[in-house]
Amino acid sequence: MSILINKKTKVLVQGITGGEGSFWTKHMLGLGTNVVAGVTPGKEGQSVEGVKVFNTVKHAVKETDADASVLFVPPAFAKDAAFEALSAGIKKVVIIAEGIPIHDAMEIRSAAMSEGAMVIGGNTSGIITAGEAMMGIFPYWIDRVYKKGDIGVMTRSGSLTNEVTAMLIKAGFGVSTLAGVGGDAVPCTRFAELLPLFQKDKKTRAVLMIGELGGTMEEEVADAIESKIFTKPLVAFIAGRTAPKGKKMGHAGAIVTAGKGTVDGKIKALEKAGALTAARPCLAGDLMKEALAR
Protein backbone atom coordinates (compact mmCIF):
# COMPACT_ATOMS: atom_id res chain seq x y z
CA MET A 1 0.00 0.00 0.00
CA SER A 2 0.95 3.61 -0.19
CA ILE A 3 -0.63 7.02 -0.15
CA LEU A 4 -1.74 9.15 -3.09
CA ILE A 5 -0.12 7.08 -5.82
CA ASN A 6 0.41 3.43 -6.67
CA LYS A 7 0.88 1.29 -9.78
CA LYS A 8 -2.83 1.55 -10.62
CA THR A 9 -3.09 5.35 -10.48
CA LYS A 10 -3.89 6.58 -14.00
CA VAL A 11 -1.52 9.47 -14.42
CA LEU A 12 -1.92 12.34 -16.87
CA VAL A 13 1.03 14.59 -17.72
CA GLN A 14 0.15 18.21 -18.53
CA GLY A 15 2.90 19.82 -20.58
CA ILE A 16 4.12 16.41 -21.73
CA THR A 17 5.75 17.60 -24.96
CA GLY A 18 8.06 20.10 -23.24
CA GLY A 19 11.68 19.29 -22.37
CA GLU A 20 11.04 18.56 -18.69
CA GLY A 21 7.67 16.93 -19.37
CA SER A 22 9.01 14.41 -21.88
CA PHE A 23 12.22 13.73 -19.94
CA TRP A 24 10.39 12.92 -16.71
CA THR A 25 7.60 11.03 -18.48
CA LYS A 26 10.30 8.62 -19.61
CA HIS A 27 11.48 8.20 -16.01
CA MET A 28 7.99 7.97 -14.53
CA LEU A 29 7.34 5.11 -16.96
CA GLY A 30 10.74 3.67 -16.09
CA LEU A 31 9.75 3.31 -12.45
CA GLY A 32 6.52 1.58 -13.46
CA THR A 33 4.09 4.52 -13.29
CA ASN A 34 0.85 4.01 -15.19
CA VAL A 35 1.08 7.13 -17.37
CA VAL A 36 -2.06 6.98 -19.51
CA ALA A 37 -2.10 10.31 -21.32
CA GLY A 38 -0.45 13.64 -21.92
CA VAL A 39 -1.84 17.08 -22.67
CA THR A 40 -0.32 19.89 -24.68
CA PRO A 41 -2.74 22.28 -26.42
CA GLY A 42 -2.31 21.98 -30.21
CA LYS A 43 -0.34 18.72 -30.13
CA GLU A 44 -3.18 16.17 -30.13
CA GLY A 45 -2.32 13.08 -32.16
CA GLN A 46 1.36 13.09 -31.25
CA SER A 47 2.84 10.73 -28.70
CA VAL A 48 5.65 10.98 -26.17
CA GLU A 49 7.43 7.79 -25.06
CA GLY A 50 4.43 5.91 -26.40
CA VAL A 51 1.95 8.03 -24.40
CA LYS A 52 -0.90 9.62 -26.40
CA VAL A 53 -1.09 13.41 -26.38
CA PHE A 54 -4.42 15.29 -26.23
CA ASN A 55 -5.33 18.97 -26.69
CA THR A 56 -7.39 19.24 -23.50
CA VAL A 57 -7.57 17.54 -20.12
CA LYS A 58 -11.29 17.03 -20.67
CA HIS A 59 -10.64 14.96 -23.79
CA ALA A 60 -7.78 13.03 -22.19
CA VAL A 61 -9.92 12.09 -19.20
CA LYS A 62 -12.79 11.01 -21.46
CA GLU A 63 -10.52 8.73 -23.48
CA THR A 64 -8.32 7.32 -20.71
CA ASP A 65 -10.11 7.78 -17.35
CA ALA A 66 -7.00 9.52 -15.99
CA ASP A 67 -7.52 10.19 -12.27
CA ALA A 68 -4.38 12.11 -11.35
CA SER A 69 -2.33 14.77 -13.10
CA VAL A 70 1.21 16.06 -12.83
CA LEU A 71 1.90 19.52 -14.25
CA PHE A 72 5.08 20.35 -16.16
CA VAL A 73 4.11 23.88 -17.07
CA PRO A 74 5.86 27.19 -16.34
CA PRO A 75 4.73 28.96 -13.14
CA ALA A 76 2.77 31.61 -15.00
CA PHE A 77 0.53 28.89 -16.48
CA ALA A 78 0.19 26.71 -13.40
CA LYS A 79 -3.10 28.23 -12.29
CA ASP A 80 -4.77 27.68 -15.65
CA ALA A 81 -3.46 24.10 -15.90
CA ALA A 82 -4.49 23.25 -12.34
CA PHE A 83 -8.00 24.63 -12.86
CA GLU A 84 -8.26 22.71 -16.13
CA ALA A 85 -7.45 19.47 -14.27
CA LEU A 86 -9.86 20.24 -11.41
CA SER A 87 -12.68 21.15 -13.79
CA ALA A 88 -12.20 17.83 -15.59
CA GLY A 89 -12.89 16.09 -12.29
CA ILE A 90 -9.30 15.12 -11.41
CA LYS A 91 -8.90 15.00 -7.64
CA LYS A 92 -5.13 14.57 -7.38
CA VAL A 93 -2.88 17.19 -8.95
CA VAL A 94 0.87 17.70 -8.52
CA ILE A 95 2.43 21.03 -9.53
CA ILE A 96 6.20 20.92 -9.98
CA ALA A 97 6.78 24.55 -11.04
CA GLU A 98 8.84 26.82 -8.83
CA GLY A 99 7.76 30.45 -8.74
CA ILE A 100 3.96 30.35 -8.77
CA PRO A 101 2.56 33.74 -7.71
CA ILE A 102 1.16 33.55 -4.18
CA HIS A 103 -2.23 34.90 -5.22
CA ASP A 104 -2.47 32.10 -7.81
CA ALA A 105 -1.53 29.48 -5.20
CA MET A 106 -4.14 30.95 -2.87
CA GLU A 107 -6.82 30.56 -5.56
CA ILE A 108 -5.71 27.03 -6.48
CA ARG A 109 -5.75 25.81 -2.86
CA SER A 110 -9.00 27.57 -2.16
CA ALA A 111 -10.66 25.89 -5.17
CA ALA A 112 -9.16 22.47 -4.36
CA MET A 113 -10.48 22.66 -0.80
CA SER A 114 -14.00 23.49 -1.88
CA GLU A 115 -13.97 20.74 -4.54
CA GLY A 116 -12.57 18.06 -2.24
CA ALA A 117 -9.43 17.70 -4.37
CA MET A 118 -5.79 17.56 -3.32
CA VAL A 119 -3.28 19.73 -5.15
CA ILE A 120 0.34 19.18 -4.14
CA GLY A 121 3.00 21.84 -4.71
CA GLY A 122 4.20 24.02 -6.27
CA ASN A 123 7.96 24.18 -5.97
CA THR A 124 8.14 20.45 -5.25
CA SER A 125 9.76 17.28 -6.56
CA GLY A 126 6.31 15.67 -6.32
CA ILE A 127 5.25 12.35 -4.80
CA ILE A 128 6.81 8.92 -5.12
CA THR A 129 5.85 5.50 -3.82
CA ALA A 130 9.20 3.73 -3.73
CA GLY A 131 9.55 0.91 -6.25
CA GLU A 132 6.07 1.53 -7.67
CA ALA A 133 5.14 4.85 -9.20
CA MET A 134 5.76 8.58 -9.08
CA MET A 135 4.37 11.91 -10.18
CA GLY A 136 7.37 14.16 -10.22
CA ILE A 137 11.08 14.47 -10.71
CA PHE A 138 12.77 11.94 -8.42
CA PRO A 139 16.02 10.16 -9.33
CA TYR A 140 14.51 6.91 -8.04
CA TRP A 141 17.57 4.99 -9.26
CA ILE A 142 19.62 6.49 -6.39
CA ASP A 143 19.09 3.52 -4.11
CA ARG A 144 20.50 5.11 -0.98
CA VAL A 145 17.54 7.53 -0.97
CA TYR A 146 14.59 5.88 -2.72
CA LYS A 147 14.71 2.40 -1.26
CA LYS A 148 11.38 0.68 -0.67
CA GLY A 149 10.28 0.33 2.92
CA ASP A 150 7.67 1.34 5.46
CA ILE A 151 8.51 4.91 6.51
CA GLY A 152 6.40 7.72 5.08
CA VAL A 153 8.30 10.91 4.32
CA MET A 154 6.92 14.40 3.95
CA THR A 155 9.11 17.36 3.12
CA ARG A 156 9.30 21.03 2.14
CA SER A 157 12.66 20.68 0.38
CA GLY A 158 14.39 19.00 -2.53
CA SER A 159 18.09 18.54 -1.90
CA LEU A 160 17.58 18.37 1.87
CA THR A 161 15.11 15.51 1.34
CA ASN A 162 17.88 13.50 -0.31
CA GLU A 163 20.25 14.39 2.52
CA VAL A 164 17.95 13.38 5.39
CA THR A 165 16.27 10.42 3.71
CA ALA A 166 19.71 8.98 2.90
CA MET A 167 20.38 8.94 6.66
CA LEU A 168 17.17 7.00 7.22
CA ILE A 169 18.13 4.42 4.58
CA LYS A 170 21.65 4.18 6.04
CA ALA A 171 20.04 3.17 9.35
CA GLY A 172 18.30 0.29 7.59
CA PHE A 173 14.92 1.78 6.79
CA GLY A 174 13.08 2.28 3.52
CA VAL A 175 10.41 4.60 2.17
CA SER A 176 6.72 3.84 1.60
CA THR A 177 5.57 7.08 0.03
CA LEU A 178 7.54 10.32 -0.06
CA ALA A 179 5.49 13.47 -0.58
CA GLY A 180 6.96 16.91 -1.19
CA VAL A 181 4.56 19.68 -0.23
CA GLY A 182 6.94 22.23 -1.73
CA GLY A 183 8.97 25.16 -0.50
CA ASP A 184 6.54 27.99 -1.20
CA ALA A 185 4.89 30.29 1.34
CA VAL A 186 1.46 29.00 0.28
CA PRO A 187 1.73 25.26 -0.38
CA CYS A 188 -1.50 23.92 -1.87
CA THR A 189 -1.41 20.91 0.49
CA ARG A 190 -0.09 21.21 4.03
CA PHE A 191 1.81 18.64 6.10
CA ALA A 192 -1.05 18.01 8.51
CA GLU A 193 -3.36 17.16 5.61
CA LEU A 194 -1.12 14.23 4.63
CA LEU A 195 -1.19 12.71 8.11
CA PRO A 196 -4.66 11.08 7.88
CA LEU A 197 -3.47 9.34 4.70
CA PHE A 198 -0.30 8.03 6.36
CA GLN A 199 -2.40 7.05 9.38
CA LYS A 200 -4.68 4.90 7.21
CA ASP A 201 -1.89 3.33 5.16
CA LYS A 202 -1.09 -0.11 6.59
CA LYS A 203 2.35 -0.14 4.97
CA THR A 204 3.46 3.06 6.70
CA ARG A 205 4.75 2.36 10.22
CA ALA A 206 6.05 5.82 10.98
CA VAL A 207 6.61 9.22 9.38
CA LEU A 208 9.71 11.32 8.86
CA MET A 209 8.96 15.02 8.45
CA ILE A 210 11.58 17.32 6.94
CA GLY A 211 10.57 20.83 7.88
CA GLU A 212 12.05 24.27 7.84
CA LEU A 213 11.81 27.58 9.64
CA GLY A 214 8.89 29.85 8.77
CA GLY A 215 5.16 29.30 8.50
CA THR A 216 3.13 27.10 10.83
CA MET A 217 2.95 23.72 9.06
CA GLU A 218 5.09 21.92 11.65
CA GLU A 219 3.01 23.36 14.49
CA GLU A 220 -0.12 22.04 12.76
CA VAL A 221 1.46 18.58 12.71
CA ALA A 222 2.02 18.85 16.46
CA ASP A 223 -1.67 19.73 16.84
CA ALA A 224 -2.69 16.69 14.74
CA ILE A 225 -0.62 14.42 17.00
CA GLU A 226 -2.04 16.01 20.15
CA SER A 227 -5.60 15.49 18.93
CA LYS A 228 -4.86 11.85 17.97
CA ILE A 229 -5.55 12.38 14.27
CA PHE A 230 -2.11 10.85 13.82
CA THR A 231 -0.96 8.21 16.30
CA LYS A 232 2.02 6.54 14.58
CA PRO A 233 5.59 7.49 15.53
CA LEU A 234 6.87 10.71 13.97
CA VAL A 235 10.45 11.92 13.68
CA ALA A 236 11.16 15.45 12.47
CA PHE A 237 14.20 17.29 11.21
CA ILE A 238 13.79 21.03 10.92
CA ALA A 239 16.31 23.23 9.09
CA GLY A 240 17.11 26.80 10.02
CA ARG A 241 17.82 26.60 13.77
CA THR A 242 20.50 29.26 13.58
CA ALA A 243 19.11 31.37 10.74
CA PRO A 244 19.41 35.06 11.58
CA LYS A 245 16.06 36.60 12.49
CA GLY A 246 14.24 38.50 9.81
CA LYS A 247 16.61 37.37 7.03
CA LYS A 248 15.04 35.67 4.08
CA MET A 249 17.04 32.49 3.64
CA GLY A 250 16.13 31.30 0.17
CA HIS A 251 12.70 29.68 0.36
CA ALA A 252 9.84 32.09 0.27
CA GLY A 253 8.23 30.04 3.01
CA ALA A 254 11.23 30.32 5.27
CA ILE A 255 10.69 33.72 6.79
CA VAL A 256 10.77 34.27 10.52
CA THR A 257 8.17 36.76 11.64
CA ALA A 258 6.97 38.06 14.96
CA GLY A 259 7.95 35.12 17.13
CA LYS A 260 6.01 32.63 15.00
CA GLY A 261 7.57 30.04 12.76
CA THR A 262 10.87 29.77 14.63
CA VAL A 263 12.57 26.39 14.69
CA ASP A 264 12.65 26.52 18.50
CA GLY A 265 8.88 27.01 18.64
CA LYS A 266 8.30 24.16 16.19
CA ILE A 267 10.57 21.77 18.11
CA LYS A 268 8.89 22.59 21.41
CA ALA A 269 5.43 22.01 19.96
CA LEU A 270 6.43 18.71 18.32
CA GLU A 271 8.21 17.33 21.39
CA LYS A 272 5.33 18.31 23.63
CA ALA A 273 3.05 16.31 21.32
CA GLY A 274 5.35 13.30 21.61
CA ALA A 275 7.27 13.47 18.34
CA LEU A 276 11.07 13.10 18.27
CA THR A 277 13.16 15.82 16.66
CA ALA A 278 16.61 15.33 15.17
CA ALA A 279 19.08 18.12 15.85
CA ARG A 280 21.15 17.05 12.83
CA PRO A 281 20.25 14.98 9.74
CA CYS A 282 22.63 12.16 10.76
CA LEU A 283 20.56 11.53 13.90
CA ALA A 284 17.30 10.87 12.03
CA GLY A 285 17.93 7.13 11.59
CA ASP A 286 18.69 6.38 15.23
CA LEU A 287 15.77 8.49 16.38
CA MET A 288 13.47 6.55 14.08
CA LYS A 289 14.65 3.30 15.70
CA GLU A 290 13.97 4.84 19.10
CA ALA A 291 10.52 6.06 18.07
CA LEU A 292 9.56 2.62 16.76
CA ALA A 293 10.86 0.87 19.88
CA ARG A 294 8.64 2.94 22.17
Partner: peptide
Protein backbone atom coordinates in the same frame (compact mmCIF):
# COMPACT_ATOMS: atom_id res chain seq x y z
CA UNK B 1 25.21 25.29 -1.60
CA UNK B 2 22.28 24.12 -3.69
CA UNK B 3 18.74 23.97 -2.36
CA UNK B 4 17.43 26.38 0.27
CA UNK B 5 16.67 23.67 2.85
CA UNK B 6 20.08 22.05 2.48
CA UNK B 7 21.83 25.42 2.60
CA UNK B 8 19.99 26.30 5.81
CA UNK B 9 21.02 22.93 7.24
CA UNK B 10 24.69 23.38 6.34
CA UNK B 11 24.53 26.87 7.87
CA UNK B 12 23.16 25.28 11.07
CA UNK B 13 25.87 22.58 11.05
CA UNK B 14 28.65 25.16 10.71
CA UNK B 15 27.29 26.93 13.78
CA UNK B 16 26.92 23.57 15.55
CA UNK B 17 30.62 22.82 15.04
CA UNK B 18 31.68 26.28 16.16
CA UNK B 19 32.47 27.73 12.75
CA UNK B 20 31.30 30.97 11.20
CA UNK B 21 29.94 31.94 7.79
CA UNK B 22 31.16 34.73 5.52
CA UNK B 23 28.29 34.38 3.08
CA UNK B 24 25.12 32.41 2.40
CA UNK B 25 24.75 31.52 -1.25
CA UNK B 26 22.33 29.13 -2.87
CA UNK B 27 22.90 28.13 -6.48
CA UNK B 28 20.50 25.22 -6.86
CA UNK B 29 17.31 25.03 -8.91
CA UNK B 30 17.48 27.27 -11.96
Amino acid sequence: CAGAGLTNTVYDLINHYGGSVSNYLEFGGP
